[in-house]
């Protein structure tokens, strides 16, 4: 790949990730519900798109729509069941869901088992081809979606809906006692995360023309949580910043061969320790840098 195609491709991946993180941010950052099941919905989108287009030979754009609709229905049903759990129990349940989906995908024949599904056709809408050969149109589409989503989430966050989500995230009992149908709002956020996860998964499959179960393994959950936290949980641009850093960083520090992963993950860890509110809110954390120096400060502990 030449330099410019490489960066175009990286830009496409960044935007694709960002779509999923924006959704994750709605449930985890705004509504405050730990959702570790993002990869499950990436898988629903990715495999859905692959099965519709490769196995069933459905038109790619229709396959994309069907994959998203399917994920929305699944996330609504799962949300109604799982979101009655709270805190660590919800974390565990969603984590379990993600692993169960990945390990089923690895074993089932409809998903191509451990091999996965190759040769996913490009998405064409009318005369426009969004496939591998024409990354510029994919780039435009993906970043267009990202910008619209950031705007929508920003509008929703500033509206009574966003306030209700944040109220649920910080004081769920108070939310209930003020008449907020907490389950409905949590499920709505979960569906947003599920639908956007599926969109992201399908777009990733379209871009790389390939899906397999290791795209949805537990280490990918870590990557997605890292993107959300590095960017800044609950911030509007954080998901985009996080996706950008996580995809671009490995390319920037290339040439380390095997050590690249280690360096990248260590840098994430350092960012979380130094800026726990995320880089989008770095100014807020800069004020507490002095507490990084170990002294007899434990009295601050609550």
């Amino acid at each position: 790949m030449t330099g410019s195609t490489f960066w175009l491709y990286t830009g496409c991946i960044t935007a694709t990730y960002a779509i999923a993180i924006i959704g994750l941010n709605v449930i985890a950052g705004l509504a405050g519900q730990v959702n570790l099941a993002t990869t499950a919905f990436l898988a629903f989108g990715g495999y859905g798109y692959a099965i519709y287009t490769v196995t069933l030979h459905i038109e790619p754009w229709l396959g994309l729509v069907l994959a998203m609709v399917g994920a929305v229905i699944i996330s609504a049903v799962l949300g109604l069941i799982l979101l009655r759990l709270r805190g660590y129990y919800l974390a565990m349940a969603t984590f379990t869901l993600a692993i169960a989906v990945a390990s089923s995908a690895n074993a089932a024949s409809i998903t191509g088992g451990a091999v996965g599904i190759p040769d996913i056709p490009p998405l064409t809408v009318g005369p426009i081809d969004f496939g591998l050969g024409s990354q510029l149109s994919f780039y435009g589409l993906a970043w267009g979606i990202v910008i619209v989503l950031v705007l929508l989430v920003w509008l929703a966050n500033a509206s009574p809906i966003g306030r209700a989500w944040r109220l649920i995230g910080s004081r769920e009992e108070l939310a209930m006692s003020l008449g907020v149908s907490t389950l409905k709002y949590k499920v709505a956020a979960f569906v947003v995360a599920g639908g956007l996860g599926a969109l992201s998964g399908a777009m990733y499959a379209e871009l790389t023309t390939y899906v397999s179960s290791d795209l949805y393994s537990s280490s990918v959950i870590v990557v997605f949580m890292a993107m959300l936290f590095v960017g800044g949980l609950g911030t509007m641009w954080g998901p985009v910043i996080g996706a950008l850093i996580v995809t671009v960083l490995p390319s920037l520090i290339g040439g380390l061969q095997g050590a690249t992963l280690l360096v990248v993950d260590s840098l994430f860890l350092a960012v979380i320790v130094l800026f726990p509110s995320g880089l989008g809110m770095a100014w807020r954390d800069a004020r507490t840098f002095r507490y990084l120096v170990p002294r007899r400060l434990w009295s601050r502990e609550k």
Binding site: G234, D265, V273, P276, K302
Partner: peptide, 25 residues
């Protein structure tokens, strides 16, 4: 350091998740 700084939300828990990734690498 995270606890000292009253890190928000689930930051310490996520930090352990990333630590797991670092050890694995």
């Amino acid at each position: 350091p995270l606890i000292m700084r009253d890190a928000p939300g689930y930051a310490p828990n996520i930090a352990t998740l990333v630590y797991l990734a670092v050890v694995t690498d």
